[in-house]
């Protein structure tokens, strides 16, 4: 239960907006961070906190690729395949990832390490092809770089090649 654990965080989030329903996305982020996905119980609880109904919370979750309705791996690889990245080889990038991870888009590796998603523009159009893993950007990707990034993450849980994002 979010409220039991994060009452102060929730109060702070609610205090930022004139209308409390505006805190929906921050609360969903909180839920996603807590459980690794947004569970039914979390949606119900958030609906209760914000005076919304669960369907209203649910439809919001389904709109955003960064929110997931089922458990995902430790690292969420989100490949941009919008126009700019597509022109410089986003399809190749997806292909490399599928080869290295042995999974398709929308799937999670058996060891629960990686989940692969294809997403819309991440605003890094000058440095494609690129992906975002959890909160970090990895840019100007090549097959060799992808292999190293995945290996580093698997080994150490971190990778020095990350470059952003810069607004967080």
């Amino acid at each position: 239960m979010l409220r039991a654990k994060y009452q102060n965080v929730i109060d702070d989030l609610l205090s930022r907006y004139p209308v409390k329903q505006s805190a929906l996305l921050p609360l969903l982020n909180l839920a996603q961070k807590e459980e690794g996905y947004v569970s039914q119980a979390a949606m119900k609880e958030i609906a209760g906190i914000l005076d919304l109904t669960p369907p209203q919370v649910f439809e919001t979750v389904t709109f955003y690729t960064m929110l997931s309705l089922k458990p995902i791996g430790k690292f969420h690889v989100q490949v941009c395949r919008s126009l700019m990245c597509a022109l410089v080889g986003a399809d190749n990038l997806l292909g490399w990832l599928q080869k290295h991870l042995g999974i398709g888009v929308g799937q999670t590796t058996q060891d629960k390490m990686f989940t692969l998603s294809a997403v819309e523009c991440l605003g890094s159009c000058g440095t494609g092809p690129m992906f975002q893993i959890n909160d970090d950007y990895y840019e100007r990707l090549t097959e060799e770089k992808v292999g190293r990034i995945l290996e580093d993450l698997r080994q150490t849980g971190d990778c020095a090649m990350k470059s952003g994002p810069f607004l967080l």
């Binding site: 949606m43 669960p54 369907p55 209203q56 919370v57 439809e59």
Partner: peptide, 19 residues
Amino acid sequence: AKALAAVGRGTLTQITHWS
């Protein structure tokens, strides 16, 4: 009642209850 949700995006939007 707010019982119906527009789930998903674009052409794949569909109307359901929830989850």
